[in-house]
Amino acid sequence: MNLDSSIVAAFTPTGKLRASINLGNPILANRDPGSGAPFGVSVDLARAFAAKLNVELELVVFDAASKSVQAVSEERADFGFFAVDPLRGETIAFTAPYVLIEGFYLVRADSPVRSNRDVDQAHNRVVVGKGSAYDLFLTRELKSAQIVRAPTSPSVVQTFVDQHLEVAAGVKQQLEADAQRTAGLRLLDERFMVIQQAMGTPKSRGPAAAGALNAFVEEMKASGFVADALARHGIAGASVAPAA
């Protein structure tokens, strides 16, 4: 992938390449408990893209997807890592996805909710991370159930427990990990959606920049970089997206 100076300039209006990193999705990014430094698949990709452009990288870190999206939409960051969604697509040019992530429902062990079909009922309250892909998707899809929004995706299960809600929705691995720490919870047996996780840049940066970012993603998938990053960080349950 050859990048001319105009594309590099489009990505670095401040002189640095600013990557928006969302810690609300533990499959893609976390913070080291010792150093506090962010790490994960999205951080690895951000560093690889900065190396491709031969520019200095600055990580702009957020605790929720909505904040990360807003930073790129408002051009406080030059690119980021997001679940593809049409609402976000109004201001962000997405690449093809690089990772596919499953979304699941969590309920109490004694809940009458046994399948996904049981969720969309007027008496159910479904908690999601505010502004997450699950929030955006379920806001469109659920017709009867009430949506309750936790501040961040990692706080969904705690909100579910504290407020005695009926259903929690989110990343399968996050829900599984939280369920192991809290007795009496279970995941439903089937996913309700598949998240297409992509990179994105402000649409204002132009089609050439968007095309270069998409080409980078395809290169990272084809070379095995994404698969290696998932393995290196011990991520199970997420898969490399097929070539676009």
Rank of each mutant, 00 (worst) to 15 (best):
I27E: 05
E102P: 05
I27R: 01
V113D: 05
D78T: 12
G206Y: 07
R140F: 09
G40W: 01
P86H: 07
V217R: 08
A19T: 13
I235A: 08
V119H: 04
G170N: 05
V41E: 03
M193F: 00
H233R: 03
D4A: 15
V43I: 06
L57M: 11
Q163S: 14
A227D: 08
G234Q: 00
I92H: 04
V217N: 08
R140D: 15
E176W: 03
R31I: 06
N124R: 03
E218K: 13
V217S: 10
I147M: 13
S155P: 04
L165K: 06
A48K: 12
E141L: 15
F160Q: 02
S68T: 13
I195V: 09
F94S: 02
V127A: 01
G34P: 11
R108A: 10
K130N: 13
V55P: 02
P13L: 07
V128L: 03
F94K: 02
V107C: 02
P151V: 04
F79W: 05
L17F: 15
N54E: 15
A209S: 11
S73D: 10
F82A: 09
P26D: 08
V61H: 02
A96W: 03
S204K: 15
V84Y: 12
R76M: 11
P207M: 13
A222M: 03
F104N: 02
A10M: 15
N214E: 10
P207I: 09
V128P: 00
F49L: 11
E102D: 11
M220C: 11
S239F: 14
Q174A: 14
L185W: 07
Q180R: 15
L59T: 05
P207S: 09
V167M: 13
N25T: 04
N2G: 14
S223N: 10
Q121C: 02
A48S: 11
G80I: 09
V161N: 01
D85P: 01
A244W: 06
R149T: 04
I147W: 01
N2Y: 11
G234L: 07
A241V: 02
L3A: 12
L165H: 08
G80S: 05
A71L: 07
F11G: 03
A212M: 06
I21V: 09
P33R: 12
G15R: 11
G234K: 06
Q146V: 08
D85L: 00
F39W: 11
S144Q: 15
P33A: 14
Q70E: 12
P26Q: 12
L185G: 03
V84G: 01
S5G: 12
S73E: 10
T182W: 13
D78L: 13
S68L: 06
V194K: 08
V60C: 08
F160G: 00
M220A: 14
T139Y: 03
D32F: 01
R76F: 14
V69D: 01
K221S: 02
I101G: 01
